[in-house]
Design a protein around this nucleic acid. Sequence first.
DNA 1: CGCTTCCTTGAGTGCTTTCAACGAGCGTGG
DNA 2: CCACGCTCGTTGAAAGCACTCAAGGAAGCG
Lengths: 248, 248
Amino acid sequence: MVARSHSSISSSIPSAFCDECTLSNICITHGVDSITKARLKTIILHPTPFQAGDYLYRIGNRLKALYIVKSGFIKVYVSTTYGEEQILGFHLPGELVGLDALGTNAHRCDAVALDTSRVCELPATKLSEICRLSPKIRRQLNRLMGRQLSHVQEMLLLLGKKSAEGRVAAFLLNMSARFKERGFPEYEFHLNMSRHDIANYLGLAVETVSRVFSRFQEEGLLKVRARNVQICDDVRLRQLVSGTSTKD
Amino acid sequence: MVARSHSSISSSIPSAFCDECTLSNICITHGVDSITKARLKTIILHPTPFQAGDYLYRIGNRLKALYIVKSGFIKVYVSTTYGEEQILGFHLPGELVGLDALGTNAHRCDAVALDTSRVCELPATKLSEICRLSPKIRRQLNRLMGRQLSHVQEMLLLLGKKSAEGRVAAFLLNMSARFKERGFPEYEFHLNMSRHDIANYLGLAVETVSRVFSRFQEEGLLKVRARNVQICDDVRLRQLVSGTSTKD
DNA sequence: CGCTTCCTTGAGTGCTTTCAACGAGCGTGG
DNA sequence: CCACGCTCGTTGAAAGCACTCAAGGAAGCG
């Protein structure tokens, strides 16, 4: 049976200042010297938490700030004029949100909280100052953009080459790894997003996701109860991801 | 009939120095003051041209340099251990290649020339110096990363939500726009890549791409002769791109 | 308790893939 | 010069995977 005390990732509340923050090891400020940290402290804001459904920013908004997720869960997506949406990612605590606007100074995505979410805010007006502060920070920003690029590229591989089963398996393993990084159970977690969101993210129909979940459960790879997932056979899941599927 | 003098984009040869380079208006150095440009001149290298099939870098290589394409055509792709490949993009003159390594200092893609290609080389060791040179350059680098991110995100939408026809139409219009930016005919151009590459890039089977090309031609949207393409009805192509297709 | 949203499951359709064959273009070598 | 083999691109026929449509169950909320 799947435990039910899981929304835990939403209730982890790092303290307000970097040097005491429980996320510091995966945060942008990781490895920065204490002087710089002190100056960061004067720059970084801590706005009131976003509630589920609140937008951090919308498409077209001028870049106001970059956000580091402290707790909660952020969904980022693009939508076309015609109303189609494509979810680009789900952001967990420790991750930086808003980089999409660095190029044009205007956001090209929507970012919405799926859960009560606390964030640290790096005001855009202070960004160049932050970058001047230390080469370390510059490198960190580059690293984070690089990581984001890398993630999106993985997604391209997923959407371009993998079957429905491969995509869902990859998604679950990815979530698992990220929960683990954050000190949460690796093989038993709560998905904050709806099946609809998962389907959209993976380029599938809702029904297909549902069916794959069911099939995985039948085959003993998972135990699924609503949004609670327990991974029972990560080895086979990994095989499904790498397993060549369709085309090419 | 499609003209045949097209590989022209490979034979445009900007002069070696930025201030005389015919690409300067779309290059990373655009808008930089002359002092900085002079210093860039001392940093930027001009290696001997890459031949078709030559690799600029391979997955895992340490970041040696960023490359600005001066002429030719670069294909960038990831490949999994199992041998699957996913093409991430095709780079035309004026575009920056190698950003994927900024995060980890190691490349996560392969980059190969599809044609004889000249490049400018920004040595990685000089990168931080370049960044220190001017905030303008920093911003340009950010802009370029942002643009890349933005492009990959568009691709996600394409692969996640569009039908085969929509994908091919979007691909053709994208190429068209980029040729136009570079002063080449907008509605008549040569595709340097194979159908196989196009298919891979768009997450389709080769045969599907071929069929869509044929269908488009039958319907008077295109004229296709081998790799030469003439766009006859860009309006309907645009409709095909935005036209909602499958799922969601 | 009824409403709504979310999720699941079934049946049928269809788009894309797969398998297969063929023509064209091209470089090689007899 | 032409045959040969190769890659590339096209086309046809058939199969399959994922989608659409439809219905019903479960859970949350006023």
